[in-house]
C-alpha cells in the first residue's frame, strides 16, 4: 500500500514549488486523513498546473483524472478535483479548487487545463456533461456521455435519478398497455 508518509512529503514538496513559482496559488492544505490535497485558487490554476508539470522537483506530467464534487448545501458549491501522477518522483497528488455556482441558474465557469495536459480534455467534457461546469478555453466543450439534447446534469445532487417503480407480479395490473401483458408466459 502507498505509505501515508510518502503522500505528505509529496504534498509538502508541491506546496514549496508552488509558493516559489506561483505565489498565492495554494490557499490551504486539506490534510484530512487518510490522504491530503492542495487547495488551489481558481485564478492561479493554469499557472500552478504548468509549474507542477514542468518543474523537475515535482514533474507531474501525467493527468489521471479531473472531476468535481457537488456540495449542495455548502458555499462555494463545487470542488473541482484533479489527480496527477509524477513518474519521475513516483508520487501522486490531488488538487482541489473551490468553485462557486453560477448566479441565478447559470452554470459556473472555470479555466480549462486542456492546454496543459491534453488528457484533461475529455475529463473536462465529462464534468461539463454530468455536473454542469463550463471550462473556459476548452477546444470542444460539448456533452460526451449523455445524448446531445439531454436536459440537466445527472451527477448534481439536486438531479433525481429517475428509474421505474418496481412492479410485483401479485399486484401487477394486466391492462392491455402494461408491460406485464406483453411477454409470452411459459
Amino acid at each position: 500500500m502507498a505509505a501515508p508518509r510518502l503522500e505528505a512529503a509529496a504534498l509538502d514538496r508541491a506546496r514549496q514549488v508552488l509558493d516559489e513559482i506561483v505565489p498565492g496559488a495554494v490557499t490551504a492544505i486539506d490534510d484530512s486523513p487518510p490522504e491530503g490535497a492542495l487547495l488551489i485558487d481558481e485564478q492561479h490554476l493554469v499557472d500552478a498546473c504548468r509549474a507542477l508539470r514542468d518543474d523537475p522537483r515535482t514533474g507531474y506530467t501525467m493527468p489521471l483524472f479531473s472531476s468535481a464534487l457537488d456540495w449542495l448545501e455548502r458555499e462555494p458549491r463545487f470542488d473541482l478535483v484533479y489527480q496527477l501522477r509524477s513518474l519521475t518522483q513516483n508520487t501522486t497528488l490531488r488538487l482541489k479548487v473551490p468553485l462557486a455556482d453560477g448566479v441565478s441558474g447559470d452554470l459556473p465557469h472555470a479555466p480549462s487545463l486542456s492546454a496543459v495536459w491534453p488528457g484533461m480534455e475529455w475529463h473536462e467534457r465529462e464534468t461539463y456533461d454530468l455536473l454542469g461546469v463550463v471550462f473556459d478555453g476548452h477546444p470542444d466543450l460539448r456533452r460526451i456521455l449523455m445524448p446531445d439534447d439531454w436536459e440537466g446534469h445527472p451527477l448534481r445532487k439536486d438531479y433525481v435519478s429517475f428509474g421505474e417503480p418496481v412492479l410485483f407480479t401479485d399486484r401487477a395490473s394486466f391492462a392491455p398497455d402494461s408491460a406485464m401483458s406483453r411477454g409470452a408466459p411459459d
Binding site: A2, T61, M62, L87, W117, P118
Partner: peptide, 27 residues
C-alpha cells in the same frame, strides 16, 4: 504524448514507459 494523454497500462508500456501500479504503488 502517451503520458500527456494520461495513458496507462500496456499501451503506455508499449510506448516505452515503465509504469505499472503493481510495482510503483504495490498493493
Amino acid at each position: 504524448d502517451a503520458i500527456a494523454y494520461g495513458w496507462t497500462g500496456p499501451c503506455l508500456r508499449a510506448s516505452g514507459i515503465d509504469y505499472d501500479v503493481r510495482t510503483s504503488d504495490p498493493y
